[in-house]
Design a protein around this nucleic acid. Structure first.
Lengths: 352, 352
DNA sequence: TGAGTGGTTGTGACCGTTGACATCGCTTGG
DNA sequence: CCAAGCGATGTCAACGGTCACAACCACTCA
């Protein structure tokens, strides 16, 4: 329990005034130098920078933001950070934002609408330049806040629904349909579905809806299904797969559709460990296209959710709007998810 | 490209003044109501809340923070978000912070010291209440900034070195030593090492150093090694394992130590796919203890890095300091990583 | 020589909220 | 009956910057 710092006892926090006194110019000039704004002679610029460095001055953005009513923050509100999908969206966002003055600030909702509302409120109270938020489903209050915020709002991941302002994503219904069609085309008939308990995962639900819809058109329906929540997705995938297969030994399933790649990978491993021929005995498919799949013994069929691209596009919309100061908005970008057949979805007919 | 909002055209952003006028009291009273501070009669409180809700007023924390010089933000600076270790640290931090007024703000450095310096500067310019930063190695400028910031600083993950203020972590040297000892005790002799190219991953380096140190004491040394950077860790693990094994066919290796669990898992899968008996022919171990391992066909030996606990403890230090307003500091917490033998590290002697 | 010019620097108001303190209207007790 | 006491509310000056504009400084050019 010793004293923290060693050299300069930093009593009162430094301000522009300190730097201005140390360098013999006005605060305004210091401000200009530090922001590279307006003309300042090379001589004074050097003098000021030297003094600032010397003192270890760090500008106070709080004061700056208040005075200029400009905040270079973009609020990013997502449900989770621990499932490989949103980190990649973040990467896309950051890629784009790095080329601008903007800075992302992340809030996590854990898939809880009330939590989302709180987080949104917190973030808006910092008056960010824009909001990127996952999904189209929000509480009424949240929608109202975003509608009234007067800043660009981009809802990401999903375009099956009505956007408040702009949106970037894929149609999950369509993704579900597309996968169903591919499975049907490959000749599978007895299909099992494995996924999260969905009440709050709207995108998984929409995929499921699209999926069953297309099955129905071919006179098929889900033969059995299995749901989970929490825990290690890989392990859950194993367990659920075991459960669903053992439950259907008489008339065995010939395909398993997983609502995400991680449980799909678990299922794949279960099958391989137990000598089940994939895709001979049974076909498998997941959703997301996580790079992680590359290392598996067999490549799981999946559908790329365009995560990186979604992040990029969303950030670009914000950046553009901030720059042009324009209140145009209302841009909707629907990306097309690509089906990746992999090794686990090929059978009788040639696919697609 | 239509107009965004529908109902209330939000021209000028709302302020306390708007609410005060709408409810017929002074701005100060509104402020008090909204912060639950000081005595306000039940009647006015209700009136004010009603007006605020009606208008959709969101307080401006920028102005609030400036006036009160109190910012409920904690800067969290970490190298990456896409490798399963830091997300869990974040979870620990958030767990604790949720019980306080504090709010974490994350900055990502991508393991680049200059980037870390920039991010730190950016975050400090928001005058956060504390900083949680990964590692003990920083640029001189970064150290200077933190030393002079006058707020609690907690360096996490590692305690092999000198902390600026407080620190929470494990000794990676010790972790490396411990693993080496376990491997030696199990009777393995020809040991390969597989890891990241380490110049910037100080913690991996320290584990490596501790590891070789103990080997040396038993008259052993690393027989061969293999390094990678970027890409899917699982796949890289496979590839590197194949490479290192094929390079040593004459005198085969009997153990592979991986610098993280993900490449370890890839290695494990390679071995299983190729009929190599684990741990009979060869033993394997990783590092981190990611839950993901639970789903693998065989449980990889690993060492838990106490990620959740580190996050929690760090957040607690900050919370305590903020609350007590105390400038005590200098607290160092060294956690003890636990060895998990799993299925891939047992052979001649019985382990530990 | 004096007005015009353009680059540099300073001045004072203001951003929206909070802290400290003053004020107001009432109840209370000697 | 009045001072004290108290809860509820208002006033005003910060907080640390930035903005718009004024002022100043050579110089140039007629």
């Amino acid at each position: 329990m010793s004293q923290g710092s060693g050299n300069t006892p930093p009593k009162r926090p430094l301000t522009l005034r300190d730097v201005s006194e140390a360098s013999g110019v006005s605060e305004m000039t210091v401000s200009r130098v530090l922001r590279n704004r307006g003309d300042v002679s090379e001589a004074t610029r050097a003098k000021v920078l030297e003094a600032a460095r010397e003192l270890g001055y760090v500008p106070n953005k709080i004061a700056g933001a208040l005075a200029s009513s400009r905040v270079n923050l973009v609020a990013v509100i997502i449900p989770s950070m621990s499932n490989m999908v949103f980190p990649e969206v973040m990467t896309g966002i950051n890629d784009v934002l790095e080329g601008t003055e903007l800075q992302a600030v992340v809030g996590i909702t854990n898939y809880k609408p009330e939590r989302e509302e709180t987080v949104l409120y917190q973030m808006l109270s910092w008056r960010p330049s824009g909001v990127i938020i996952a999904g189209l489903e929000h509480t009424e209050a949240a929608k109202a806040m975003m509608g009234a915020a007067g800043i660009p709002i981009v809802e990401i991941m999903d375009t099956d629904g009505e956007a408040i302002d702009s949106a970037v994503g894929i149609s999950h219904r369509r993704a579900g349909r597309k996968m169903a069609q591919a499975i049907i085309d490959a000749g599978y008939k007895r299909i099992g579905f494995l996924g999260t308990k969905m009440p709050l995962d709207h995108r998984a639900r929409k995929r499921f809806e699209g999926f069953t819809e297309v099955l129905a058109k071919s006179g098929l329906e889900i033969t059995d299904s299995e749901f989970y929540s929490g825990g290690s997705a890989l392990k859950k995938g194993r367990e659920m797969t075991e459960a669903i297969l053992k439950r259907n030994v008489d008339e065995p399933l010939d395909f398993l559709y997983y609502s995400n790649d991680m449980i799909g990978a678990g299922g794949l491993m279960y099958c391989l460990d137990n000598g089940i021929d994939v895709p001979g005995d049974i076909g498998l498919a997941g959703f997301n296209g996580i790079e992680f799949l590359d290392g598996l013994p067999r490549k799981l069929a999946t559908m790329d959710a365009c995560r990186l691209e979604i992040g990029r596009a969303a950030a670009e919309i914000i950046a553009k709007r901030v720059e042009s100061d324009g209140h145009a908005g209302g841009e909707i970008i629907t990306l097309e998810p690509s089906l990746e057949i992999g090794d686990t979805l090929k059978r009788k007919k040639k696919p697609l």
